[in-house]
């Protein structure tokens, strides 16, 4: 363990930890845009600058490892001024159209502008004007809002190994780009979007779906697709799913795949079955029926078959999609109520 002092408070953290980690342990808030504990230290946004006794310049706390007897200052007038200048600079090259931005209310840049009370800006000048022409159906890329924190590039490289995007150009023209600036062509896992601190990366799938409404409800649950069992959070407005994301502190660390992140539309589909259907005549059409009618019919026919042909003339197919409780009740129904072990599911397929 390494012992150090941060803002006159002593803390001891494990070797190799960064100053920022240690400060967070003391619940000291240091602003960041490019930091993500799931990614390698980067030190690009410069907001997490701190002063270390004996060092001539401030250092980025997210990239500087702790050292024994280090004395760190995280907040003073000078650091405040530096952070404020950086934010002013970022905002001097940002559309600042929060009124219509998908990420308003869920935007780190907006939060910081608010904390630092940046109503005025000493700087104005040329702003980037990149055309948006990416035709992919999942991810909206508005590079004018990008603060170049590099998280999207890093997650695509470090986590996904896909490397679909990288930095291109220099100076103010620096931007995150696909190879040859073509349309994004990747696995569309949306990890980039999930780590973006601004409105630069949002989803076309839920654009305008009401993220900003006060009545969005968040429900932690499990992805309905493969067996990885990723944790997801459903965002719903009344009885409509409007977005899916995943918390960074869960087993899958917030990472999802294209299906888990974007494949929720089926829940809202107008094709959903909404009433029992019965085929009243052989070879006739399926017609709407009441629950009472449907359940009575099934109970009657099952009893009939069991009576005539024995319980083993009936069988049930359970599912790898429904819950444990439902599968349990289903096999219990067949074994205890019908009286057969003819019960299986799709594991073989």
């Amino acid at each position: 363990m390494i012992n150090l002092t941060i803002d006159e408070r002593k803390v001891s953290v494990k070797e190799g930890a960064m100053i920022l980690d240690a400060a967070r342990e003391l619940e000291i808030f240091i602003p960041t845009l490019c930091y993500d504990p799931r990614l390698k230290p980067y030190g690009g946004c410069r907001l997490c600058l701190v002063e270390i006794e004996g060092m001539s310049r401030p250092v980025s706390s997210c990239t500087t490892p702790v050292a024994e007897r280090m004395v760190v200052t995280t907040h003073n007038d000078h650091l405040y001024r530096l952070r404020r200048t950086i934010l002013e600079l970022l905002l001097s090259d940002h559309p600042n159209d929060c009124m219509v931005c998908e990420r308003a209310g869920d935007c780190t840049l907006q939060d910081l502008a608010y904390f630092y009370g940046l109503r005025d800006n000493r700087f104005r000048g040329e702003m980037r004007k990149f055309e948006e022409h990416d035709a992919n159906p999942f991810i909206q890329r508005d590079m004018n809002k990008c603060v170049l924190c590099g998280k999207c590039v890093r997650v695509c490289d470090e986590v996904m190994g896909v490397n679909a995007i990288d930095f291109a150009y220099r100076g103010l023209s620096t931007r995150i780009s696909t190879p040859y600036e073509k349309d994004l062509d990747c696995e569309f896992c949306g990890q980039c979007m999930s780590v973006c601190p601004t409105g630069a990366l949002t989803s076309k799938v839920w654009a305008g779906e009401g993220r900003r409404r006060m009545d969005v409800k968040y429900t932690d649950t499990i992805c309905p697709y493969c067996g990885c069992g990723c944790n997801i959070t459903l965002h719903s407005v009344r009885d409509r799913i409007v977005k899916v994301n995943s918390r960074a502190d869960n087993g899958n660390k917030g990472w999802l795949c294209v299906k888990g992140r974007f494949g929720y539309e089926f829940v809202n589909s107008p094709d959903r079955l909404t009433t029992p259907l019965i085929r009243r005549e052989k070879n006739g059409d399926l017609e709407p029926a009441t629950w009472n009618e449907a359940i009575s019919l099934i109970a009657g026919r099952f009893e009939d078959i069991r009576y005539k042909h024995g319980p083993d003339a009936l069988a049930g197919l359970a599912s790898g999609r429904v819950t444990n409780e439902e599968n349990y009740a289903f096999q219990k129904f067949f074994r205890a109520v019908i009286g057969t072990n003819n019960i299986d599911h799709c594991a073989r397929l």
Binding site: C228, G229, P276, R321
Partner: peptide, 26 residues
């Protein structure tokens, strides 16, 4: 089918799923 019953999707119910590493989750 002779009878089709409309079921709830995963987003519309409580329960548990067990993932491939035997983890039972809500």
């Amino acid at each position: 089918a002779d009878v089709v019953l409309p079921a709830a999707s995963f987003a519309e119910k409580n329960g548990t799923f067990t993932n491939t590493e035997r983890r039972v989750q809500r």
